[in-house]
């Protein structure tokens, strides 16, 4: 994935692991999402030959966690877990702390 506009609802998958995400909220303009240092893939795209995960990245992306950038203009939901740290334009994303509500329905 080169620089792409990130639209809410769009899905991306890691080129080097099982990780998948859905965009909940996104900043304007074009950006690059990566996982384990490798650009993520949109829709039916397949990984280019020979791509490899950043060997120094021991991170894990966890199903059900939300990932945000520093100003929370980007929010992703991990819909399938996998190896690798998520990053926006090279900056690693953080897990958004959940506000646990009492179950109401």
């Amino acid at each position: 994935m080169a620089m792409t506009a990130l639209k809410p609802g769009a899905r991306f998958k890691s080129a080097v692991s099982d990780a998948q995400v859905m965009v909940i909220k996104a900043p304007a303009g074009e950006h690059e999402l990566s996982c384990a240092g490798v650009a993520m893939l949109a829709g039916a795209d397949t990984a280019p030959d020979g791509v490899q995960a950043d060997a120094a990245d021991s991170g894990e992306t966890l199903i059900g966690k939300r990932y945000v950038n520093e100003d929370e203009s980007l929010e992703l939901l991990c819909t399938k877990g996998g190896a690798g740290t998520l990053a926006l334009d090279g900056t690693p994303l953080e897990i958004k702390q959940a506000k646990q509500l009492p179950s109401s329905d």
Binding site: P8, V23, G64, L77, T79, K80
Partner: peptide, 13 residues
């Protein structure tokens, strides 16, 4: 965005 993701995630996990 699609609410079917909710079931996909539960079935996955």
């Amino acid at each position: 965005m699609n609410i079917s993701t909710i079931l996909d995630m539960a079935a996955e996990a």
